[in-house]
């Protein structure tokens, strides 16, 4: 089983919003689509989901052209959508039925996920003085709880492919952890997850492979660990009591950021960094912390798409 996106091109008139996007998920896991606003992430996700048409290329699922209407797909959109005035239960049953589930199957899944996402009180309110209470409407819920209902809608049909567009945005730390645990569960179930997020630590936590888009073009793609390795350990962090700016200049390093007693430095290689450390020791610099590491995804992202890229 695999998901392949081959040479996807999307144009609006003369504007190309997606230019030959390629990626493949040979194994289940989480794939990240990254980019600044307007880079083409949501367009890519919409094309994969069959919401938008495309001009060139193809999307293959299990070697055949993917039709989102026929395979099990779940979607959590960037901007959440629920009918504000309709009952949550009615909406969830409707979404499930659109995924060809029966009402009984839907109810069973809703019960499971309501418990798992801790929203039972809104969907199965307890009786008050022996009277059955109405389940809530979407506009009676907080933003975070609405997000839970949305995730529930995406998971109800037990999808093989799960597309999550900014799944953790706007969540408090507790609910963020809850969502992460569900993503991990889905990974264990060997699902294919495509995630788009601006929270780089989250991407690093879950994704093995990434594509970074800039104005519809792929600027970086591949396995996240390999990408990081290819950059080498060039990020140095030094915390000390003395001023070491003269040493940094002498070694020809770039001072990226400086706060009192702390220096973030871009070095030219690991060997030079080791020499730099030796020099500091020789000069009796009182070192509190010395760290040499690969660049973070955040740093790679900023390097690749930084600048005047806001759309």
């Amino acid at each position: 089983m695999s998901l392949q996106v081959k040479n996807l091109v999307k144009k609006y008139g003369d504007t190309t919003v997606l230019n030959h996007l390629n990626f493949e998920m040979k194994e289940p896991g989480v794939y990240a689509l990254l980019g600044t606003n307007g880079a083409g992430k949501t367009t890519s996700l919409r094309i994969i989901l069959g919401m938008l048409s495309y001009d060139e290329g193809e999307v293959l699922w299990q070697g055949k052209p993917m039709n989102a209407l026929e395979c099990k797909v779940g979607y959590l959109a960037e901007e959440r959508g629920l009918y504000p005035k309709y009952s949550l239960m009615d909406q969830l049953i409707y979404f499930a039925k659109l995924k060809n589930m029966t009402k009984d199957q839907a109810m069973k899944e809703i019960k499971y996920w309501a418990e798992r996402l801790e929203v039972e009180e809104y969907l199965f309110p307890e009786k008050v003085k022996g009277k059955k209470q109405k389940n809530k409407n979407a506009d009676q819920l907080s933003k975070g709880n609405q997000q839970k209902i949305q995730l529930m809608a995406a998971l109800l049909s037990d999808p093989e492919i799960l597309v999550l567009d900014e799944p953790l945005s706007g969540l408090d730390p507790v609910n963020s952890d809850l969502f992460k645990s569900i993503i991990r569960e889905e990974m264990k179930k060997r699902k294919y997850l495509i995630m788009s997020s601006h929270q780089m630590p989250t991407i690093e936590e879950f994704c093995s492979d990434v594509t970074i888009l800039k104005r519809g073009n792929t600027v970086l793609q591949g396995n996240l660990n390999e990408i990081k390795k290819s950059y080498g350990r060039v990020n140095m962090f030094v915390k000390c009591e003395e001023d070491i700016r003269s040493y940094i200049d002498a070694f020809g390093f770039t001072l990226v950021k400086e706060t009192p007693g702390e220096y973030q430095i871009k070095v030219t290689g690991e060997e030079e960094a080791t020499k730099f450390l030796k020099k500091l020791v020789e000069e009796n610099i009182n070192l509190i912390r010395f760290e040499l590491r690969e660049p973070s995804l955040h740093e790679i992202f900023v390097e690749k798409v930084g600048g005047n890229d806001e759309a």
Binding site: M51, Y75, G81, L82, L98, A153
Partner: peptide
């Protein structure tokens, strides 16, 4: 309503 609340995005992946 469906457009302004973005529900439409959920619908058109199914119909």
């Amino acid at each position: 309503t469906e457009k302004s609340t973005r529900v439409i995005e959920y619908l058109i992946i199914s119909v």
